[in-house]
């Protein structure tokens, strides 16, 4: 009510001089903001352009050329590289390998990290300790973890950790990484990734859990819902929908990008190489067939895109927060 009582002239005379100054300051402030925006974002945008977009575009170019041992090829071959890759049984079987891997790793990571989150969330004492302890492996590199898995835990000789434990029960040594029937190599491959990534997804779930309003649980209690499965099934799980979808999508993409543990644990072998290891082998190893490699990489990118879009369609990613 007080504002209209001010006389316009008085306001003007007082503020004309002063209004300019804050305005200029504001302009400067905005320009400054823009400056700082670019100072902070610029390096990343530049990095993205140089190290991601440029290679992607160049890869697209290479995929239409015969490019052995050169990144500046001259022999245009049209779609031949794509046709070769789509009929290459090794490439197709690498997609199969990935599928098996995803079938193991995605549900396992989902369930275990959720269970871990529920447990850690209920702990009353030393919460920070438990959270950190399970999150710590995320800080370890895949290469280092793979080396530990290969050299000390799952080596095939009698002094490997796993074999020592089996030895206590009188069971023979198992060559974990070299046995194809039964395919024991999946055990180290899956466990190393679980160990490395469970903590990260657990933190996502804990964040999700803490966003659930306690009033919902109180209401459920008043309505006579039994604590435990019933509450989890009808309150916790539906409330975690957004987090769950994010975890699933991130997990699947991470599985598509599997490289380090496969490369370091079993190398480039044809019975268990995911697409990236195969593409690395043909384009960056001694073969240096950059044309076929680029075509394969782009096919893979399209597949990842389609799967992610389908998944978010089905689970309603983005709408999930409603």
């Amino acid at each position: 009510m007080s504002a209209p009582t001010k006389t316009p002239s008085a306001a003007d005379s007082v503020t004309t001089g002063e209004r300019r100054r804050p305005r200029r300051r504001r302009q400067k402030g905005i320009a400054g903001n823009t400056l700082w925006f670019w100072v902070f974002v610029g390096p990343f945008v530049l990095g993205l352009l140089i190290f991601s977009y440029l290679p992607i575009i160049w890869s697209l170019v290479l995929s239409f050329f015969e490019a052995y041992n050169t990144a500046t090829p001259s022999k245009f071959v049209g779609l031949r590289n794509y046709i070769d890759m789509l009929t290459d049984h090794n490439f197709l079987s690498s997609l199969g390998t990935f599928t098996i891997f995803a079938v193991f790793i995605v549900p396992l990571t989902f369930v275990l990290s959720l269970v871990l989150a529920l447990l850690v969330n209920q702990v009353k004492i030393a919460r920070a300790f438990f959270r950190s302890v399970f999150f710590l492996p995320t800080a370890c590199s895949y290469v280092v973890a793979s080396l530990i898995w290969r050299l000390s835990i799952f080596n095939g000789v009698r002094f490997g950790l796993a074999n020592t434990v089996l030895g206590w029960f009188g069971i023979d040594n198992i060559a974990w990484l070299s046995t194809v029937s039964p395919p024991w190599y999946w055990l180290p491959l899956v466990t190393v990734r679980l160990w490395l990534q469970l903590g990260f997804y657990m933190i996502l779930f804990i964040a999700g859990l803490q966003r659930i309003s306690p009033t919902l649980y109180e209401a459920a209690y008043v309505d006579g819902a039994k604590p435990g499965w019933q509450v989890f099934r009808y309150i916790t799980l539906p409330q975690l929908r957004a987090t769950s979808v994010a975890v699933l999508i991130l997990n699947l993409i991470a599985a598509y990008q599997a490289f380090d543990e496969f490369y370091n644990l079993i190398g480039n072998v044809n019975y268990a190489r995911p697409p990236l290891v195969y593409l690395y082998g043909i384009s960056l190893g001694s073969i240096q067939d950059l044309g076929h490699g680029s075509a394969g990489a782009l096919i893979l990118a399209v597949i990842i895109m389609i799967v992610t879009l389908l998944q978010s369609r089905i689970f309603g990613f983005g709408k999930a927060g409603d």
Binding site: Q27, I30, A31, L35
Partner: peptide, 10 residues
């Protein structure tokens, strides 16, 4: 924001 100015500034 005064786009022209800030860009030049930038």
């Amino acid at each position: 924001p005064n786009a022209g100015l800030s860009r030049r500034d930038l």
